[in-house]
Design a protein around this nucleic acid. Structure first.
Lengths: 285, 285
DNA sequence: TTGCTCCTCACGTCACGTGAGGTGGC
DNA sequence: TTGCTCCTCACGTCACGTGAGGTGGC
């Protein structure tokens, strides 16, 4: 878990496990295929192994996002890459050893850097707070007309910090099930020293997953929620990026506000679609 | 709109337009392909045109749902069909002319009937009620910890009934845009005499779409909300069908309750995924 | 040496789409 | 007759996956 390699590149298999949580359908053969189509061009070791640097991985992420969110065929994605509109140099870190900015090279790389954002700091270790199992999610049927749900976004540092055992006790999920949710990228832990800690967001996800499981729905069926959220964020991203490029704290707030607006609208729309469909189902269409 | 053919079958093109709202990726060539793979076997006219009866169309719907919701490859779908577990005879209507139950035929058809549900009646015409443009959706950022949104399901007949012009005025959408939403199956009208009327659900959808449009998001980008709702309902369906088969009004209520529960859980999970993703985006990951 | 990961290259596959060349029906 | 929809059949395409046969590195 804590083994960050001291070399600055990853092998194809390491890239795979890095991306699998965000992109469940990525595979080694897919990555090789993307290279064969000219979308990637990683360096090689003398013996022929591919070497993936930060910029390569960001480029790959971008490609996979385009496929998923915009349903673009690879040819179009390739064209956009060729136009050099996008920058994949990692922000907030020294440039990776392999040259792109500065020294000229004969391998086609990306244009000049223009950092996008940074500062995703490792949270300071907090004492483990055990949270007694709180009242379970308990939905009901009631009257409509209350307006859409408000989607809330804030960066309040979490007051909750649970070990995996504590999270397991609080939700009734086994450690295996928690691990599965984590592999699917639905849940995240924060490694602190030797153990991993789970925050309130993770607790919420685990709790919902436990409720689903009590209805017989397994974790793997829940991945579609992550996927649809990713699609949605992909749509929002196009509206948010122009604002975020300004980098001022005011722009940041503006982007957060817009994100909240869009999320609430999306929520209302999704709820309406779901009502329609469920009614059809219950009415026997 | 009101032209229901007096023949009891549809041509392939008619089937296409019938299904396109629910299955945006269906095509004539896809339907023909499914037949070539042995998943469909429509009758033919003497001149070779395909004739699709109710049972054929239900079968096709089922296949398309399996593809979308369970991601099943066609071979597996074909096997399940061959095992004859599923029944596609339309409920609540006299059997379609082509024989499946009763007269033996040499064309492979589906096994014995076992009606699933019925009674989707045409609503009685209601007077048009103009609804003054109500306060727009207005989300905001506020504190968390309010528990998940409650998804509400009820069958209250709508108090709202708007013509397309009225809906257009109430939302600011053009008739073209409303038509587009309708073609995508996100919005439904109820044909009453010569004009179509839109209920409160349609009003809500149109209002949200208008708000999205004011951010520059077009209707076609909103289709993903319908798709993800369809996926979700596909998951719920497997839990609901066993209950619904009981046909008692108590079972119906039970199914509606469970549907509400599941929808609320799904909502909580989706919101958590969305918060994660949006935070990552805003923090510059 | 063993086990694991990685490599290439050829071929397979899955789910369609396209396009030529033609017929049918109001 | 015109325009539209429909037909078949062969071939193309898109995005990979597989599998043989081999090398590299701790």
């Amino acid at each position: 878990m804590s083994s960050v390699n001291d070399r600055s590149h990853l092998s194809i298999g390491e890239v795979l496990s890095l991306l699998q949580a965000d992109f469940p359908d990525v595979s080694i053969s897919k990555i090789r295929f993307l290279e064969s189509q000219g979308l990637l061009d990683p360096e090689r070791t003398p013996s022929g192994y591919r070497k993936f640097y930060e910029a390569d991985i960001e480029r790959l992420r971008w490609i996979l996002r385009q496929q998923r969110e915009n349903f673009l065929p690879l040819k179009v994605i390739k064209d956009r890459l060729a136009k050099g509109e996008i920058d994949f140099t990692p922000a907030g870190e020294p440039h990776s050893p392999v040259g792109s900015a500065g020294a000229p090279t004969d391998r086609p790389r990306q244009p000049a850097p223009e950092p996008v954002a940074a500062a995703h700091q490792v949270a300071t270790p907090a004492p483990a707070v055990v949270h007694d199992a709180p009242p379970p999610v308990e939905p009901r049927l009631s009257a409509p007309e209350r307006g859409p749900a408000r989607i809330v976004l804030d960066d309040s540092s979490s007051a909750v910090s649970l070990s995996i055992d504590e999270l397991s006790k609080a939700t009734g999920l086994t450690a295996r099930e928690i691990g599965e949710l984590e592999r699917f990228g639905m849940l995240r832990s924060r490694p602190t020293g030797t153990t991993a800690y789970y925050d309130d967001e993770a607790l919420e996800v685990a709790r919902v997953a436990a409720a689903f499981r009590s209805h017989g729905v397994e974790a793997r069926h829940l991945r579609m929620y992550k996927l649809s959220a990713q699609r949605e964020v992909g749509l929002f991203e196009q509206l948010l990026l122009p604002i975020m490029r300004k980098h001022s704290s005011q722009a940041r707030q503006e982007a957060a506000d817009l994100a909240g607006d869009l999320a609430s609208l999306g929520d209302a729309l999704r709820a309406a679609m779901l009502r329609q469909q469920l009614r059809d189902l219950l009415d026997g269409t």
